[in-house]
C-alpha cells in the first residue's frame, strides 16, 4: 500500500497555534525531543490572523497518540488540538510534478491528469508540469499512473483535513476534540 494512503498507523492532528515567531520550531522540536515521528506537516494561517493551523500526520507506532497529544498540549502557544479520525474526515493534498514528456506522449499525460481533474501549469519543449489536488489516495493513483513517463521532480504538500460533516443538520460532528480544559 502506498505510504500516502489512509493507514491505521497514522493519525491526523489539527493543531491551532498562536501565530507567533518560533511556534513551528517548538512543535517540531517537541516531536524530535520525545522521539515521535511526523509523517507529514502542513502549516498555514487560519481564519483568525492571530492563529495558525498546523496539520500533522503522526506515526502512532512511535508513541501512544494520547502521550503525543498531551505533550503537545503542554506547549504554551498551542491553543487547541483536534484529533481527526481519517475515516471521519475530509483530507486534501496538492501534488505538483514535472514530467519528462516530449510532444509525442504529451497528449497521454494531459489525458491522464485530466482524469484526475488535474491541470497543466507549465509546458516546455520536453517537459510538462502538472498539478493535481485531491484526496491523498487519489494523488497516489495519479502518481502511479504518471510515473512510467518519468518524473523530473515531484512535490506534495502534505495533507490538510477538516472533520466530515453529518448528513443530519441536528447532530454534531464526531471528532474527538482535545481542547485545553479551562
Amino acid at each position: 500500500m502506498s505510504p500516502y494512503g489512509v493507514d491505521q498507523r497514522h493519525h491526523i492532528l489539527s493543531v491551532l497555534v498562536e501565530n507567533k515567531a518560533g511556534v513551528l520550531a517548538r512543535v517540531a522540536g517537541l516531536f524530535a525531543r520525545r522521539g515521535y515521528n511526523i509523517f507529514s506537516l502542513a502549516v498555514a494561517p487560519s481564519g483568525d490572523d492571530r492563529m495558525s493551523r498546523i496539520t500533522i500526520v503522526v506515526d502512532v507506532e512511535s508513541a501512544p497518540l494520547e502521550q503525543i497529544v498531551r505533550q503537545l498540549d503542554k506547549l504554551i502557544p498551542v491553543v487547541q488540538i483536534t484529533e481527526l479520525d481519517p475515516a471521519e474526515s475530509r483530507e486534501r493534498e496538492l501534488l505538483l510534478a514535472t514530467v519528462a514528456v516530449g510532444p509525442e506522449e504529451r497528449g497521454q499525460v494531459i489525458q491522464l491528469v485530466g482524469v484526475f481533474e488535474g491541470k497543466i501549469v507549465d509546458v516546455g519543449a520536453d517537459r510538462l508540469t502538472v498539478m493535481v489536488a485531491g484526496a491523498p489516495g487519489k494523488l497516489d493513483d495519479c502518481e502511479d499512473l504518471v510515473r512510467p513517463y518519468g518524473f523530473v521532480e515531484l512535490q506534495r504538500t502534505g495533507r490538510v483535513a477538516l472533520p466530515r460533516l453529518d448528513r443530519q443538520t441536528h447532530s454534531h460532528v464526531r471528532t474527538h476534540q482535545t481542547e485545553k480544559a479551562g
Partner: peptide, 8 residues
C-alpha cells in the same frame, strides 16, 4: 496573552 494556557 496566553490563549493556550489554562492549567487544571
Amino acid at each position: 496573552d496566553l490563549p493556550g494556557y489554562h492549567p487544571v
